[in-house]
Design a protein around this nucleic acid. Structure first.
Length: 907
RNA sequence: GGGCGAUUGGCUCAGUGGUAGAGCGCCUCGUUCACACCGAGGAGGUCACUGGUUCGAACCCAGUAUCGCCCACCA
């Protein structure tokens, strides 16, 4: 929230300086998470400096996790990606605005509060300031609505806030343990007063500009939740059905149609075939009578009818599907609704079936059997009646069809006519086409990572078939900040909504009273009523940049963070969260809400299936982090590229753990050569040895390439480059130089020794910075041994001092030396002797082009290979011209004489 | 039906025109004083398939197959 909520720091941390300058005897990853989390909190390491200019800021529109759910490994995965980016940008000199939000608004919270406290929301009730819930903790209690006490919306929201505080504390704790470099001073809740005010203010501005409007129209309706739903919340699922071949009656004989929804027969308004369909030409312009109900309906032509579907002629009902809506609208058909909001057939006899209005008596009689039944029961009854009347041709043929479901629902959606609020999103043909073009253009401005994710945006925007329906007939959520005048006839005037001043927001029209009215006038003729609906949860989440950035309450902050730099999110909500945020920003600010969108992939379980929540919960994120260590789990996450699904792989975490431990140990080793603990010189001018220079030259290349990778949002590449070089550094370079770095214990430090020590220091300093975004704990631990401050506030490495130290050294020389060392190791390995076994004499054959190079490092190779006598280097390939020869493959030991290691002597 | 990804050693994945790579696993060896949560060495792949372009293809083009996902599909 932009109204800052100070975060309490649970336990005072030890002064960070206590450990500075001392390399411990024994290193460990255990306990680093808690220790450094405390130190970072106390040190304000990730605090956002709100005096920074916009150009220096890197702002992130963090996805707010749903707090009434639980975090699973997928969250850990994608939030790590964001944190890696945040840490890189921070080290690159940007002031990172990285808030955390909690999505505690919406159906999941609503349901949880109902069960937990045994209440339900009734917006018609007045607020009770002294309310105490009937129960606390829902285990084993009834979840039936009848057993839940009705309370006012405000009381309900208070309970939501009370319950979500608990969840949010737990979530924050996990994020801290994972090492997210969030500035916890900046966190927000989608249920908070500020978020509600932002959502209402944005809506009022949409309304004032004509972008929000109300319409009475057929729309998708969930009968379980009894609310309208938006196109973005649809999910097509397989649903069993059956084709029923049904006869309509024409003068010339029966006309057969096929339908999977015979219960809609009473709602039929026309039969429709394709204009070019020869079979039905003679019927166009005539009328037929519906079976059972005897309603006279026209036979019409429309190009949307598909000749090869079913019988080729369709029965158009109001409303069975979206095609019906299209026909109804374009052919101006009457409305004959028979399905109510509860999913049952309406109880009152529809006018066109009433006997006293001229309908056949049998029609009304049959209707009386159907009234109030579910669609399922009605279908059975209609089919029975059709069979009895002989209008069912043959038996129903089972089929599997696709039906639209609300993504959270389990019954197919019906189409119900209702008054709803919409926001323009380019989904409508005539007035919306221009907006659609603009929004598609925004899509091309936005940098998607990876780029191919853009097509999901384009597909969605291009395929919209209506504006964004934002009203929901639910109780918990952000209410529409409007009232309607009630006329003398007692009917609300929806065309002249009464709106509050922006300064009065947030309002709840079910309890607040508009200016110029008194509370007593609520619902009275000549008075007012509040809009009963709430906004879709996406109507609030589409404003996260505005909520987190202080659009309403902190314009100074907003100025510095908006438009934001990054929106990280999952690919599944491009059509919802990403798109709706673009719509709001485009309408309100005339800009994109952010410059970049980083799309994380799915976590797949070992069977290559999307990891389900239930499976994810078996392995809790906390357990995972505690078992492997946060750096290890972060390593696993960071090893997966953006937009790519990743396997949940414990093996990768073990590798990460090994890497983190190696960082600790190798650092300790590199820091202890001087004998004076962490006193390692970082002076590039001390580096004189060819091998040291080559190592630093290679490292400078790694810095350049890793930086390019991070700039391109390719953290995986950056990590891989760093990691590979680090292992070469450990396995070859450290081995090669350790004797020289020890300096034989001489009091006077030779130039060669000083060179090795300076190179080690420079390399370590650089590699810690390179690893810091992925392994924040291990790198910070090492940093604290010998450097001041936090590595996470240190500058991203600069290749310049490395290049200065390297001079014109060829980075390939380290590989040459490594190959020479490997050849000596191989001799011992094949002889099955200890690596400690001395080599009394050897001849090293190398490619002709590498003779000089090996010669320049032969001292270090001799030491590392424990060659006590002569080590001659000769050209393996007489004659030049093999410039491309692979040193690694061609470097072999020709003649060798092994000594005996003390170990073997003892054995 | 339209689209987007993917297909490389047992596993997880790099590799976008120049003689196939990494890690894990596996095999062999090594108690080395940074690290046994270790080290060294080794085996292991006709890069899904079929054509084409090219001096040369894992990589470019066309097509096919399989897997995953998005959109459309309710008569």
């Amino acid at each position: 929230m932009s109204d800052l909520q100070p975060t309490e720091s649970p336990v005072p941390a030890p002064a960070p300086s206590a450990s500075v300058g001392r390399v411990p005897d024994k290193v460990s990853l255990d306990g680093l998470e808690d220790r450094w989390d405390r130190a970072w909190t106390d040190g304000g390491t990730y605090a956002f400096d709100r005096t920074a200019a916009r150009s220096d800021v890197y702002s992130i529109d963090t996805p707010p996790p749903t707090v009434s759910g639980s975090l699973h490994v997928g969250h850990v995965f994608s939030y790590t990606h964001t944190d890696v980016v945040a840490r890189y940008r921070r080290m690159s000199g940007r002031e990172v605005f990285y808030p955390m939000g909690w999505d505690d608004n919406g159906l999941p919270t609503e349901r949880r509060v109902q069960n937990y406290f045994g209440v339900r929301c009734d917006p018609s009730l007045p607020y009770d300031p002294d309310f105490t819930p009937p129960q606390v903790g829902g285990e084993g209690k009834s979840t039936k609505a009848a057993d839940q006490r009705p309370i006012s919306r405000r009381n309900f929201i208070e309970l939501c806030e009370r319950l979500t505080v608990e969840d949010e504390r737990e979530f924050e704790s996990l994020w801290r343990y994972l090492g997210l470099s969030v500035d916890w001073q900046h966190h927000y809740q989608t249920i908070s007063a500020e978020a509600r005010a932002v959502a209402q203010q944005a809506f009022l501005r949409n309304l004032a500009r004509g972008e929000a409007y109300q319409a009475e129209a057929p729309g998708l309706w969930d009968v379980t939740f009894q609310t309208a739903v938006a196109q973005a919340e649809l999910e097509a699922r397989d649903y069993p059905g059956a084709f029923h071949r049904v006869a309509f009656h024409a003068a010339a004989g029966p006309v057969h149609i096929e339908t999977t929804r015979p219960e809609l027969l009473p709602a039929v308004v026309a039969l429709i075939a394709h204009p070019d369909d020869e079979r039905y030409q003679h019927l166009f312009g005539t009328t037929v009578r519906s079976p059972l109900f005897g309603v006279e309906i026209p036979v019409l032509a429309h190009p949307a009818a598909e000749p090869d579907k079913g019988a080729g002629i369709a029965m158009c009902c109001t409303f069975g599907d979206l095609t019906d809506v299209q026909w109804w609208r374009e052919l101006q058909l009457p409305t004959r609704s028979v399905i109510g909001r509860d999913g049952r057939l309406v109880r009152d006899t529809p006018a066109w079936l009433a006997a006293d209005a001229g309908a056949a008596p049998e029609a009304e009689a049959l209707w009386s059997e159907l009234a109030g039944t579910t669609t399922f029961t009605a279908r059975t009854k209609v089919v029975e009646a059709l069979r009895a009347s002989g209008d069912l041709d043959g038996e129903p043929v089972a089929t599997q069809r696709k039906a639209n479901f609300f993504e959270k629902g389990d019954k197919p959606l019906e189409i119900v006519t209702s008054r709803q609020w919409y926001i323009r999103n380019g989904g409508r043909p005539a007035p919306g086409r221009e907006l659609r073009t603009e929004l598609l253009a925004r899509g091309t401005e936005l940098a998607f990572h990876p780029d191919f994710m853009r097509v999901r945006y384009e597909n969605w925007v291009g395929g919209l078939n209506g504006d964004w329906l934002i009203s929901r007939q639910r109780f918990f959520g952000v209410p529409f900040p409007v009232w309607y005048p009630v006329g003398d006839d007692g009917e609300p005037d929806h065309d002249h909504p009464i709106v509050p001043a922006e300064s009065a927001l947030p309002v709840d029209p079910s309890s607040d009273v508009p200016d110029g009215y008194t509370a007593e006038q609520r619902g009275q003729a000549g008075g007012f009523v509040g809009d009963p609906d709430v906004m879709d949860t996406w109507a609030t989440s589409s404003l996260t940049p505005q909520i987190a950035g202080g659009w309403r309450s902190d314009p100074d902050l907003f100025e510095r963070v908006f438009p934001m730099d990054l929106r990280p999110q999952g690919q599944d909500i491009i059509r919802t969260w990403l798109f709706s945020t673009v719509v709001r920003s485009h309408l309100e600010h005339g800009s994109l809400p952010w410059a970049n969108a980083a799309i994380s992939g799915w976590i797949l379980d070992p069977d290559r299936k999307k990891m389900s929540k239930s499976k994810g919960n078996v392995v809790t994120p906390r357990g995972l982090l505690e078992e492997h260590g946060s750096d290890a789990v972060r390593y696993w996450a960071a090893s997966a590229r953006l937009g790519t699904d990743a396997a949940f792989e414990v093996g990768q975490m073990k590798i990460g753990r090994r890497l983190a431990i190696k960082v600790l140990n190798a650092s300790k080793f590199a820091l202890t050569f001087g004998g004076e603990g962490a006193d390692v010189a970082l002076d590039p001018s001390l580096v004189t040895d060819p091998l040291d220079r080559a190592m630093l030259a290679g490292l400078a290349d790694v810095v350049v390439r890793a930086t390019e990778a991070y700039e391109a949002y390719d953290h995986t590449r950056a990590l891989e480059l760093t990691e590979t070089y680090f292992w070469t550094f450990c396995d070859d370079y450290l081995e090669l130089v350790k004797d020289r770095a020890y300096g034989g214990g001489a009091a006077e430090v030779s130039e060669a020794t000083a060179s090795a020590r300076a190179a080690l220091g420079l390399a370590l300093d650089t590699m810690l910075r390179l690893f810091a975004p992925v392994l924040p704990f291990a790198t910070e631990e090492v940093w604290s041994w010998w450097r001041e401050g936090s590595v996470h506030r240190a500058a991203w490495p600069d290749p310049a001092p490395l290049r200065q130290a390297a001079g014109d050294a060829d980075p390939g020389l380290l590989g040459v030396a490594g190959a020479a060392l490997a050849a000596l190791r191989k001799v011992k390995s094949e002889a099955k002797v200890s690596m400690r076994t001395p080599i009394l004499r050897a001849v090293l054959a190398v490619p002709a082009t590498a003779v000089d190079a090996v010669g320049s490092v032969v001292g270090d190779v001799r030491a590392a290979g424990r060659v006590t006598g002569d080590l001659d280097v000769v050209a393996a390939t007489p004659g030049a011209g093999d410039g491309a020869a692979d040193v690694t493959a061609l470097t072999v030991v020709r003649e060798v004489e092994l000594g005996e290691a003390e170990a073997r002597v003892r054995a």
